[in-house]
Simulated assay, not measured.
Amino acid sequence: MDTVRASVAPARPGNSAADARRDARAFLDGLLPAVTSETADAVLLAVSELVTNALRHAGGTWSLELTAHPDSIEVAVHDPSPQAPRMRTPDLNGGTGGFGWPLVTRLARTTAVTPGPSGGKTVSALLTR
């Protein structure tokens, strides 16, 4: 299998994590050989969490790029905030979150936060295929 890359959700304010999951699912469904259901679930969860973080903490504008390598899938979310994700104690009662970044770091083989040229960042997660 060759490396396959797609920008599946260009930056558009107001698009939801559900939109990103739908687009990511379409990308995954087009891969040959097909990914396992476990890999698809992990990728969709990482997409959902990273886009939700961009919506909540980075002003709501984001773009998503997925790259399929022979042994992994890379999820990269670009947003305009320079703030890197941070670990925090999950809020079990108040609904303020704290679950997303720890979840992504557990799902991924590696994660990276790369500053963007115009002050934003790209948060990426590499998941085993």
Rank of each mutant, 00 (worst) to 15 (best):
G95F: 02
Q83K: 12
D23G: 11
L50G: 08
P10G: 05
L64V: 07
Q83T: 14
P33F: 12
A24P: 02
R86L: 13
T128E: 05
D91A: 09
D29F: 08
A34I: 10
V8Q: 02
A58L: 03
R22G: 10
P102L: 02
S16D: 02
V113L: 02
G97R: 13
G100Y: 09
G116T: 06
L45K: 12
M1A: 09
M87L: 15
V47S: 04
T122S: 03
T111D: 06
D91I: 09
D91H: 04
E49W: 06
T39I: 03
A18H: 08
T110H: 01
T111C: 10
A26V: 11
D23C: 10
T61P: 00
A125R: 08
T89V: 15
I73N: 04
S37H: 11
G14S: 09
A6M: 05
G14Y: 10
S63I: 13
K121W: 00
K121G: 13
V104A: 04
V75G: 08
F99G: 12
T67G: 06
F27R: 08
H57Q: 11
P70M: 00
S72L: 01
V35Y: 01
T3H: 02
S7H: 12
N93S: 15
N93C: 09
T122K: 03
T128R: 02
R25G: 04
A54T: 11
G60Q: 14
L28F: 03
T3V: 01
G60N: 14
L126M: 07
D79K: 07
L92Q: 09
W62E: 11
M87E: 14
P85K: 13
E65N: 04
V4T: 11
A9L: 09
A68C: 02
P117K: 12
A112G: 13
